[in-house]
Computed example of a mutant assay.
Amino acid sequence: MVDQASMVVQVCYASTSTVSLLEVEVDTQATLTQVIQQSGIIQRHPEIDINVFKVGVFGKLKPLDAHLHPGDRVEIYRPLLADPMEARRRRAKKQARG
Rank of each mutant, 00 (worst) to 15 (best):
P70T: 06
A30W: 03
L68G: 07
S20N: 14
E75V: 03
I42G: 05
L32R: 00
N51V: 08
I42W: 01
T28A: 08
G59R: 10
L61C: 06
Y77A: 05
Q34F: 01
L21F: 03
G40D: 07
V19K: 07
A66G: 11
P63S: 13
G56R: 11
I42H: 02
L81C: 09
I48F: 06
R73C: 04
T16D: 13
L64C: 09
T16G: 13
D65S: 11
V19G: 08
G56A: 13
G59P: 01
V57A: 09
Y77W: 08
V35M: 03
V74F: 00
S17A: 12
K54C: 11
A66I: 04
H69V: 10
L68I: 12
I76N: 01
P46H: 13
L80T: 09
A30T: 02
Q43F: 11
I42F: 05
P63M: 07
V35R: 02
D65P: 05
D72V: 00
V26H: 02
I36L: 04
L32E: 00
G56T: 11
A82G: 13
D72T: 08
I41S: 04
Q37S: 14
L22N: 11
T31Y: 04
D83V: 04
K60Q: 15
N51Y: 09
L68S: 08
E47Y: 05
Q37V: 09
L32I: 09
I36E: 01
A30I: 04
L21Y: 00
E23V: 00
V26P: 02
S39G: 06
Q43L: 12
I48R: 06
D83Q: 05
E25G: 03
V19P: 12
H45K: 13
I48D: 05
Q43T: 14
K60C: 06
T18P: 08
T18D: 15
V74G: 00
D65M: 10
S17F: 13
V74T: 01
L64P: 07
D65T: 12
L68C: 07
L22Y: 03
L68Y: 03
L21H: 01
S15P: 08
T33Y: 07
F53K: 09
K54R: 15
S17Y: 15
D83H: 05
P63D: 10
V52T: 14
I76T: 04
E75M: 08
Q37M: 09
H67G: 12
N51S: 12
S39L: 03
P84E: 06
Q37F: 11
L21I: 15
T33W: 07
A66E: 12
L80V: 13
V52H: 10
S15K: 06
V74L: 01
K54Y: 09
T18H: 14
K62T: 08
D49V: 06
Q34C: 07
Q38E: 11
K60Y: 10
T28F: 00
V24D: 01
I50H: 06
D72C: 05
A30H: 10
L64R: 05
D49E: 11
H67D: 05
Q29T: 15
S20V: 13
V24W: 00
R73D: 04
T31N: 07
I36Q: 04
P46Y: 13
V57C: 01
Q34S: 02
H69S: 14
D65C: 11
V26C: 02
P63L: 06
S20C: 13
T33C: 10
V57E: 06
T16W: 14
T28C: 13
T33S: 15
P63N: 11
S20Y: 09
